[in-house]
Nucleic acid binder design. Structure first.
Lengths: 223, 223
DNA sequence: TGATTTTTGTACCATCTCGTAGGAAAATGT
DNA sequence: ACATTTTCCTACGAGATGGTACAAAAATCA
């Protein structure tokens, strides 16, 4: 008996809220992996090859977890995919939210947003990974209603975020009252989509940046 | 002996150019399928599920050809995929070229182009099939250089076609001399890409048409 | 110490996957 | 009629795939 014997309040059925960081002190054999980093590795694989072309063996090798552990932790392949996608969305949101929050002139704001997006889409050791939402729309979305709904949600979340930016710019007088924030937002999203796709086709960053520049000019006026 | 006995010039090694329609009069057992329709069926499948999720059994069932025949006619799965993609491009070009050719006011022209595109993307009995170029960019493109090159070619072909339209409109005075045809073309392509993706996520046609309308307004002036 | 709980890891299963071998079938040529 | 050519089609094989059973391992609890 090495560690403390404190009886503790380990209710198991109703922990306060999820003890946050305070080491949970689980009962059985400790996990040999960190679920978060494992999920990250799985996400990397799915982004690189897509759902169908990624095998459980690949996932097992990448995460360092053997098949049954993978199963126990995340459920079957489809569930793991869904969790990976949710993780992707959470990550992207985290990287974007300060940019969307900070008050900046609309032009600067868009430029920063696209810069972050390009970082996300061009990352990847074995080729640019693109936008997971766009990729998933292309493959699993039509056949799987649940995944389809998630993808749709991802698309509209982006639309709304952009619309907010343009509305703010309009209210502050940066954009004319005649501007249509929703239409501009859809165009801003379209620009996101086109650079995501082109990134996968290995169009160099310079060119993508030039596309972004033209688009921003058209949306905010050529200034 | 029913048909003609004409010795003929069936050189086999150097037929004039490919006798065109004149029944070739092959030597062995006749084919039980028409390569063109079989390729069309294969394309349908690939568009629906993507390369990795489409098995040779699926392809065999859809085309009515058994595996070895499929092989003999089109090569292995990857070659069949590539031929399917080329066929897709040829089909799309055929549907588009009259629209791109006919002289029309830029606005009408764009509207027609997008209408055709929507027809292509929304077709499919088991869900909208989207744009094959976009889907392939998302999945196979990064890993396979040859496929990547084809996809890139598909993207730039569209860019160029749009650029031609805008240049023509500029020369005819429909667009101001200050307009940037290349930038507008990239935006027009972006709009194609965004509706292709959204179509896969089952966004209804009405909504896609509204996106197109806003985009056209922004490109040609709100008129 | 021994019971309990949880995770690990090997080994396995049934199925599917791509691809091919090899003979039967159906046409033409002589 | 018989050889030749081309295609069809059954059957198979080697390997991959998703998923699971089960015993050993490693922790806590009493």
């Amino acid at each position: 008996m090495v560690q403390k014997t404190v009886s503790s309040d380990r209710g198991l059925a109703k922990r306060p809220v999820e003890d946050a960081h305070a080491v949970p002190k689980r009962r059985g054999r400790p996990r040999a992996y960190e679920p978060d980093v494992a999920l990250g590795k799985a996400l990397d694989l799915f982004r690189k090859d897509g759902f169908a072309a990624t095998s459980l063996d690949d996932l097992s090798a990448a995460t360092g977890m053997n098949r049954p552990s993978l199963y126990g932790a995340f459920g079957d392949k489809r569930e793991l995919f869904i969790k990976s996608y949710q993780r992707y969305r959470a990550d992207a949101r985290a990287k974007m939210q300060d940019v969307f929050k900070v008050e900046l002139p609309i032009r600067k704001r868009l430029e920063r947003i696209y810069a972050v997006a390009l970082d996300i889409y061009l990352s990847g050791e074995e080729g640019p990974r693109g936008c997971f939402t766009v990729m998933t729309a292309g493959s699993e979305a039509v056949a799987d209603p649940e995944i389809c709904a998630m993808v749709l949600d991802g698309l509209t979340e982006l639309d709304k975020a952009f619309a907010m930016c343009f509305r703010a710019a309009q209210e502050s007088g940066e954009l004319p009252a005649s501007a249509d924030p929703k239409a501009l937002a859809q165009l801003a999203s379209a620009t996101i989509h086109t650079i995501a796709i082109r990134a996968r086709a290995r169009v160099p960053r310079k060119e993508l940046e030039s596309i972004v520049k033209s688009a921003v000019d058209l949306m905010c006026g050529p200034r």
